[in-house]
Design a protein around this nucleic acid. Structure first.
Length: 871
RNA sequence: GGAGGUAUAGCUCAGCUGGUUAGAGCGCUUGCUUGACAUGCAAGAGGUCAUAGGUUCAAGUCCUAUUAUCUCCACCA
């Protein structure tokens, strides 16, 4: 074995071995299934640190369950990411001087598939570098044959059921991308704008006006009403009257609507149903006409009269100027407001009315709400239920059409000859009614339409098949809180609607990865980290551990390269501890743990610790608390196994007693093997590499070995107490030496006067104390002359240090100890003198407090004696 | 504007259903090539557990308010 941990020398080889052995592949079997579907990364993307976190959690869970004996399926795949990918391709084309129209739909799609072929596989290779145990035989893609079939089926079914409809709705329109985008794809940014107060003359009355306030004067050309609050006394008289719209001359009514806030602006709002979502709602309530004044590219259209052809910005300037000329501009205020921008190209979005396809949500939301309220689906942590329920309870119809080419084309067919329209599972070229040609809808579906079907489309739905039967519903969905509404909620209602069964039982939500300063990682800040570089530098296991260690459910994690280094050191520690154990295996008879006749207290201590950590880790992993499991294992491996057991074992390993050597190596090997198995789900590579070299393997490879099980018989309370006492004594001596400025490499004599009943124990453990506390010898008497001394549970410990000792210093030290002890005595006495405590606290607790008090009184006595001896 | 999270050592975080002397890693100080590991070993310094109240025999832990900070949702012309 190498002297240092060198992940590059084995990670790739081991991954290949796993693949060759088909360990990741799952098939329906007698075993109980455990299934996770991966949140499919976009084909545009590179693996980023967020994927690394999300998928490390999943892999840890999957590997744990596999070792626990489940038929474990982790189903991988990628997402076509309609708009994101299309934008990237178009950008690339622009560099080459090509536009979409140059290529045409066919040509563009050809190019898009080439893109997919080139980049779709890249992220898969990156996932493999992380060590993820996905069933690659089942690799899916949201636009592959299976998923496309499912998308078609769902669309047609819902269309026939009347759940999908086409309608005029106000939607977010990106004038640059030339497509509708969902609410979630709009990013709001605070902008410094203006609030213009405009006079609208009342029709038929001289010098009567109502003043409206607006941030978007250019839309006034499409105004079809002015609204005031029904309770606003200032305007009660005016409701029902007509306004003669300036510049346009159209007569529009003044209506009363609760939407209007009396306190904002002038309390009167111009209503433009075609260009504002709220106005649209008002328009529906008051049956107002809808007049579009803009084209799809955000220039003014023919309804804008004299302003036609201007951009929206130009039109705004012109209209404000014209109002001013007419004396109708009352004032201009600066005004901070949020303006929506396209999340892709950052153009400010234009709310416009257009014909789009929608999914009726109310009916679908009801069972989806019920499933969560009834605990059929559980969010972890629970608080994220609120996010979900809030969204579901306030759901709006889902606009699913996108004016793009890359995606699932809407399977609706029109006959221009007879007007027949239908949704179809098969492509239609000829109208079944009149025999004339049919044309397909030009738009594609929102990306999330296919992602919503992911848990069952990937398993072969709508075809009945054993996979679907066996693996659905899946067990746990692991994702970040940022896509609960986008994705998780849509999978839930889709599963319930189309499968008649929830898609998963549990939703595990984690936070996002931030940089060392707590900032979101982003391209513009340049504070992102590339997981692949980190793997290159530190190994995949180190990356996995640093991502997962210490995360708690739902919380964000801060990430820095410093962390990587310390977990790489941890890998090195595991590596070297293993190397130590293996080095001592030569010429040794390895026994099964049950064959060892005389386990030492230390053996029993480490076995008991191992057992306890097994229980804790199992408990955490069952709750998917991978972070807490990782932290426990770190503690155990470094601070218990390495710092203590290995050090204690050296006395036996270098002794002449052959049986003792055999026994000790056997225990070391056993604890090492079980520990490697416990951490394997988190750090699969290094554990597999070491396991392979173990002489006591209990399976062909660690990833298919049985996970350790808690054994209630291994408490060994007495031996644990003895060991802990030894550790205390050693620590105290080290501490004393340090305080007395004894050089680290100088050995000194140690004298022990055992406490009552401790004589035998003291003799048994003397050699260990000598070794670990830098003793030159151990004697069981009080030394002649002056010395430094300690009071321990084992007895009094003396260290004669001759000239080395500084008596004043030793006095100070003991006095400080006494003071500390007195504090404790006071605290314990205070508690025990408290009537309330004695009356109400549990008896065991009171007893414990009494024992403590006694212990401290004893200790104080001993210390005072030591002090006296110094004089 | 609405909802939620977080606040514990210089930094990153543990601390379960209230009950050890509030813990770990990193960093810091000091000393060590102690027969696995200097990617290491040992010892140590460092915390009035955000603030103010409250419940309780007992509060880092539960409740209320405040402050700071983060996130999500909505988007008011």
């Amino acid at each position: 074995m190498n002297k240092t941990y060198d992940p590059k020398s084995f990670e790739e080889r081991i991954y290949k071995k796993w693949l060759d052995n088909k360990y990741f592949h799952a098939e329906p079997s007698e075993k109980e299934p455990f299934t996770i579907v991966i949140p499919p990364p976009n084909i545009t993307g590179q693996l980023h640190i967020g994927h690394a976190l999300d998928d490390t959690i999943q892999d840890a869970i999957i590997r744990y369950k596999r070792m626990k004996g489940f038929e474990t399926l982790w189903l991988p795949g990628t997402d076509h990411a309609s708009i994101a990918t299309e934008v990237k391709i178009v950008e690339k084309m622009r560099e080459e001087g090509i536009t979409k129209d140059d290529l045409g739909r066919e040509g563009f799609l050809k190019r898009a598939y080439e893109w997919k072929a080139q980049y779709g596989g890249r992220i898969v290779e990156q996932l493999k570098k992380m060590g993820f145990s996905c069933d690659w035989d089942r690799l899916a893609f949201t636009m592959d044959e299976r998923c496309s079939k499912a998308v078609r089926e769902v669309f047609v079914k819902m269309y026939e059921k009347g759940l999908i409809y086409q309608g005029d709705r106000i939607i977010n329109w990106c004038p640059k991308c030339q497509t509708a985008i969902s609410d979630a794809e709009v990013e709001y940014e605070a902008e410094e704008g203006h609030l213009w107060h405009l006079k609208y003359p009342i029709d038929g009355e001289e010098n009567e006006y109502i003043i409206v306030a607006t941030t978007r004067p250019e839309t006034m050309l499409g105004d079809t009403a002015v609204a005031v609050n029904p309770h606003d006394k200032r305007y009660t008289k005016l409701v029902g009257k007509m306004i003669k719209l300036p510049l346009v001359g159209r007569l529009i009514p003044i209506v009363a609507d609760r939407y209007v806030d009396k306190a904002f602006g002038t309390g009167a709002v111009k209503i433009t149903p075609a260009h504002d979502p709220n106005d649209f709602e008002v328009g529906v309530r008051h049956d107002l006409p809808v007049i579009r004044v803009m084209n799809d590219d955000a220039t003014m259209n023919e309804n804008a009269g004299a302003y036609a052809g201007l951009t929206r910005e130009e039109a705004r300037k012109a209209i404000v100027a014209d109002f001013d000329k007419l004396g109708l501009l009352v004032k201009t205020e600066t005004h901070q407001h949020n303006v929506g921008h396209c999340y892709r190209c950052h153009t400010s979005i234009e709310p416009i009315v257009s014909k789009q396809w929608f999914v009726k949500m109310k009916e679908l939301a009801e069972p989806a709400i019920k499933a969560v309220l009834d605990k059929e689906i559980v969010f972890m942590p629970k608080r994220f239920e609120k996010t979900y329920l809030h969204w579901m309870n306030n759901i709006r119809d889902w606009c699913i059409s996108r004016q793009l080419w890359w995606g699932h084309r809407i399977p609706v067919f029109y006959c221009d000859a007879c007007g027949y329209t239908t949704a179809s599972r098969e492509d239609l070229t000829v109208c079944p009614v009149c025999g004339q040609p049919m044309r397909q809808d030009e738009d594609v579906l929102d990306t999330w339409f296919s992602s919503a079907l992911w848990p069952f489309a990937t398993l072969g739905w709508p075809d009945n098949n054993p996979d679907l039967e066996y693996f659905y519903p899946t067990n746990v969905l692991v994702t970040g809180y940022d896509i609960i509404t986008f994705w998780v909620s849509r999978m839930i209602f889709s599963g319930l609607e189309h499968m008649g069964e929830k898609p998963f039982s549990e939703v595990l939500i984690h936070g996002i990865v931030r940089d060392a300063l707590g900032r979101k990682m982003s391209k513009s800040l340049g504070n992102g980290v590339d997981p692949l570089l980190l793997i290159e530098k530190y190994g995949a296991d180190s990356l996995r551990y640093s991502l997962v260690n210490g995360i708690s459910a739902g919380g964000d994690i801060r990430f820095s390269e410093d962390k990587m280094e310390s977990y790489r050191n941890f890998m090195n520690k595991i590596w070297n501890a293993s190397r130590f154990v293996l080095m001592n295996c030569e010429n040794v008879k390895i026994k099964d743990i049950s064959e060892i006749k005389k386990l030492t207290p230390f053996d029993k201590w480490i076995l008991s610790r191992l057992n306890a950590v097994t229980a804790q880790v199992t408990k955490f992993m069952d709750k998917y608390e991978v972070g807490l499991a990782a932290a426990k294992l770190y503690e155990f491996i470094w601070n218990q196994f390495c710092d203590w057991y290995i050090e204690l074992s050296k006395t036996a390993l270098y002794s002449d007693d052959e049986e003792k050597r055999n026994d000790t190596v056997s225990v070391l090997l056993y604890v090492l093997r079980e520990t490697l198995k416990l951490v394997h789900p988190i750090i699969p590579f290094v554990t597999e590499e070491i396991y392979d070299a173990l002489p006591n393997k209990d399976a062909e490879d660690i990833m298919i070995s049985p996970y350790p099980v808690y054994d209630r018989k291994r408490a060994y309370r007495k031996d644990v107490a003895t060991t802990e006492m030894v550790m205390e004594v050693i620590k105290s001596i080290r501490n004393l030496r340090r305080e007395m400025n004894v050089s680290q490499n100088k050995r000194t004599a140690i004298h022990i006067v055992p406490a009552e009943g401790m004589e035998k124990t003291a003799k048994k453990i003397a050699s260990y104390i000598e070794k670990l506390a830098m003793g030159s010898s151990v004697a069981f008497n009080e030394p002649e002359g002056k010395n430094a001394s300690l009071v321990t549970a084992l007895g009094k410990v003396f260290i004669p240090m001759g000239d080395l000792i500084d008596f004043d210093k030793e006095r100070e030290r003991i006095k400080a100890e006494i003071a500390k002890t007195e504090d404790e005595i006071a605290r314990a006495q205070g508690k025990l003198n408290n009537q309330g405590f004695v009356a109400k606290a549990p008896a065991a607790l009171i007893e414990k407090e009494r024992e403590k008090l006694e212990k401290y009184i004893e200790l104080k006595k001993g210390l005072e004696e030591s002090l006296k001896n110094l004089d």
